[in-house]
Design a protein around this nucleic acid. Structure first.
Lengths: 231, 231
DNA sequence: TTGTTGTAATTGGTTGAACCATTGCACCAA
DNA sequence: TTGGTGCAATGGTTCAACCAATTACAACAA
């Protein structure tokens, strides 16, 4: 009914503003930012507030800060990380659709292998968790996230877990559209049951194929939605 | 000959200290940190210095900070990102070897597809850059990074670029060992020439296979080094 | 008792001024 | 050319104070 207001701290506003200037090229890589004291004056905030914003830019690997020297803009094509990509996805609406397709494509190479490994490496406890998720009263969206997460943990590869966190951050934002179609809910439901079965049976090849199939299916659907919405 | 001294700001020392407490479980997820004023007192730093450290924890998705309420530890298994993984890799020496194997394994699923896409999507300019890299006077390590980067850009998928940045951050740290062996330098040299050729010829399947072969080779080598060093 | 309201306490957010530590640079001397 | 010296610029840290959001709780009303 109502949408939550977008409440931001000053330091977030500032970091957003600078990030935008960097990724749009208004602040070219290699360029030097004004001294903190000057920049704070220009932004009309206190130096401390600016410094907190700069800490975030630093954590995003967007700038390099050197005491006694200054603040330099890094080349985000060389230093950018997935956190920055998340930022681009949510803030630059003009390229959201392209980035989303990119992400879906790569997930299709990663997740089937994750499922394969999970089928081979899963603990008995993880199998129990997976089975119980099928019977839980979570929404389809929550269950989907939980099952993927459980599979990632079962794979025994910590990078899968953290990559999945990235994917989940994305799909929490965009998953609503997908699951608003009944046919997709039904497809996910079938997928959940079959992948859990394959993993519990330690059938790696089946798990890989099942995961691949649902991702191909989802990718096609999402592509269609985006074409009809954005073009 | 000499190694650069590890110089840290106070706010970095603090964030490191808190991160360690979180990932080791000393600060369990869901728990509430002391108020900033108290915590600053305990850490013997000013509140502003602490706040800058907290900004970093926030950017790493490790804590959730709410004005008027407090600072809560998030579940890093659910929220952790690759930046955190990088941190774990460099700071927790006891699990470095496992994480490194995890990373190499996933790179083996990702990079061949990246090479395939690059062969199909590359621009003529990117092909020129690749060819010129073969003739450059970079060290083998620098050239290796540059070629992978060029391939990622040629693929046309921005996620490849940012994932590669992650891999490169890792290998800048650990690549020295690998390239200290002459046989590996020779193998990379052959790899560089053949992958560039395949991509320039727009031969996607060849590019994928060549990339896969070198990664399998490297993964085996690194595994051996780690077994002999850490066990 | 139960629910509401108002108030105080708690806690993160912001400001301002001052001083410390590091760096870069111009200048000088050997 | 090389190394030292001092100054100015700039990020790092501290202190003290106040603003703003949230929570806890007492007081009150139904």
């Amino acid at each position: 009914m109502f949408t939550s207001v977008n409440r931001k701290n000053l330091n977030e506003e500032i970091s957003d503003q600078i990030i935008t200037k960097i990724v749009t090229g208004a602040l070219p890589c290699g360029s030097k930012l004004p001294p903190e004291r000057d920049l704070a004056l220009q932004l009309n905030v206190n130096r401390h507030t600016l410094r907190e914003a700069l800490r975030k830019l630093d954590a995003l690997d967007l700038v390099s800060i050197r005491q006694g020297d200054g603040i330099y803009v890094r080349d985000f094509r060389e230093s950018g990380n997935l956190e920055l990509l998340k930022y681009l996805l949510f803030s630059r609406k003009d390229i959201t659709s392209d980035i989303l397709k990119n992400i879906l494509e790569i997930r299709r190479f990663i997740s089937p292998e994750m499922a394969y490994k999970a089928a081979l490496n899963r603990s008995d406890e993880e199998a129990k968790i997976l089975s119980s998720l099928l019977l839980s009263d979570l929404t389809i969206e929550e269950r989907d996230l939980a099952i993927h997460q459980s599979i990632a943990r079962g794979s025994g590869n910590i990078l899968y877990i953290f990559l999945l966190n990235f994917f989940n951050d994305i799909f929490r934002e965009f998953g609503g559209l997908y699951f608003s179609f009944k046919e997709n809910v039904a497809a996910s439901d079938r997928f959940h049951r079959s992948i859990v079965k394959a993993i519990c049976n330690r059938d790696g090849n089946a798990a890989r194929k099942i995961m691949n199939d649902i991702l191909v299916y989802a990718e096609n659907k999402v592509s269609k939605y985006m074409e009809s919405n954005y073009e």
